[in-house]
Structure formats: structure tokens, C-alpha cells
Amino acid sequence: MINKNLEQQAQAIFKEWFIDNPENNEWSTGTFSELIKSTLNGDWGKEAPTGNNTEKVYCIRGADIPEVKAGNKGKMPTRYILSKNFAAKQLAAGDIVVEISGGSPTQSTGRCTAITQSLLDRYDSGMVCTNFCKAMKPKEGYSLFIYYYWQYLYGKGVFFSYENGTTGIKNLDFSGFIETETILIPPVDKVIAFDGYCKSIFNQIFANGKQNEHLAVLRDTLLPKLMSGELDVSDIDL
């Protein structure tokens, strides 16, 4: 609940600074493609080391996005990919992962999550996204601006207009979206101020998530011992 409140706080600040701001009629318009340095394709590799697929990675899927957004580690599967693919596709702090295939009649593709150093530090190997996702590398200082703008548009149902495929799995026209969807581009100093402010919120979200993980491990370790009587707490004075 605390993390959800922190996330809502950041979204509210984004809307106040950039959507409802009366100064925005003086800002230029553009597209996300102007704020993105490059994009990375995903990889799925092999389940076990096979041939030249020897680089161990954790692979973030669309199914992991809600958990990661909530500040949790998620349950990313271990895969083995080519070393050259890892060099080209490794995720770094500040990247944004977008689900480009999947969705449902009521849920569009386009869900996203920001990659933080806090998340990367909780895994013992590097990370890539699956080939059902795509990653963006924003220009310096624009990561969280893009992330919250993307979520704002997602909440308005904009991504339904950029999907193709009427049966089965839907696919997002990712290039079409970042190159044609018109957005407001505020002064860079305002973007950087927002990025710095929201990093503190992100750090708190992931610190809370890590603490929750530790508490869950402690619970799962102690509860069976309490239930079996292996631990006697009858003398504890509450």
C-alpha cells in the first residue's frame, strides 16, 4: 500500500507539472522518438547452456512488469544467450522496458516498467528483456519523464490505437507510436528537476520492496517451525 501511494504521488506530480500546467501552451510539441537515444530488442535464448548460448541472463517478461513496478524483484527466468547478443541487449539503469506483444480485449499492449540500479543489484547476473518486449534508452535526464508520460497515455487507452492483430496475440506498433504520437516537450531544466525528484521516490519504492522480501523470507522460515513446535515462544511476554 505504501508503494502504491508513492507511485500515485509521482504520477500526480507528473500530471501537475506537465499536463495541467498552464505554461504548457508555450512548449513545443514532438514525439517520444526525439527523447530516445536507442532501442533494444529482446532475446529468449536457451533454457540451458547450448552451443554458443553460454551467457547467463535474467529475462524480464511482460508478466514481470507489474511486480517490478511495485518495487518487487519479480520471478524472472534464467536463460542463456549469445555473448554478442548480451553485449548489445543488456539492460542498464534508466532503461524502460515495454511489452509489445500480448494484451487482451480490455488490456492493451504497451505496459512498461523502468529499470533501476536497485532492481539490477538484486540479481546475480545481467538482465535482458524477452523478444515479446522492447527496451528504450532515453536521452540523459529523460528516463522518468518518458516513463510517467508513457503511463499517463496508457491510462488514457491510447495504445489500443497502435495495435495490430485481431485474433490471438496482439502486437504493438512500437515504432509507429514513438514516431507519430504527439507529446508536449517541456524545457529541459524542468524535466531534469522532475527526474531527480522522482528518483528519490523510486529508491524508496525499491527499498520497501526489498524489505518486504526479507520479511517474507523470515516468515517462510519461521512459520513452519512455529507450527511444528520446533520454536517455543510461550515464554515471550507481549
Rank of each mutant, 00 (worst) to 15 (best):
I146Q: 05
I183M: 10
R111H: 06
S200F: 10
G45D: 03
I60M: 10
Y80R: 14
Y142Q: 09
T106H: 09
K225A: 12
N203M: 07
K134D: 01
K84T: 15
F32Y: 11
Y152N: 01
A193W: 07
N72K: 07
I146M: 06
L144E: 08
D232Q: 14
R111P: 01
G51F: 06
D95V: 06
I183Q: 05
A12I: 02
G209R: 03
M127P: 02
I13Y: 00
A216S: 08
I146R: 05
V233A: 14
Y142G: 09
K84R: 15
L153K: 05
S175G: 09
E230C: 13
I178T: 07
F206Y: 12
G110A: 07
T113D: 01
L82M: 15
I96K: 11
P138F: 12
R111C: 01
N5M: 08
I81D: 05
M136L: 12
F160C: 04
Y197H: 15
A70L: 02
E55A: 13
P224Y: 13
K225N: 12
L223H: 11
L172A: 07
E163R: 05
K134C: 04
N171E: 07
L40Y: 13
F202C: 11
I81E: 08
I178D: 04
K73L: 04
G196F: 12
L40D: 03
I201K: 02
N212R: 07
S125L: 00
Y58D: 08
G103V: 12
M227Y: 15
M1G: 13
V158H: 03
L35W: 07
L223M: 15
C59L: 11
C198S: 12
A10N: 04
G94T: 08
G196D: 15
K84N: 14
S125Y: 07
C198D: 04
A92M: 11
A48T: 09
N72V: 00
S175Q: 10
T78E: 14
D237S: 10
E16M: 01
H214V: 03
L35A: 09
A87M: 11
P224F: 13
V217K: 08
I236N: 09
E26K: 10
L223G: 10
F86K: 12
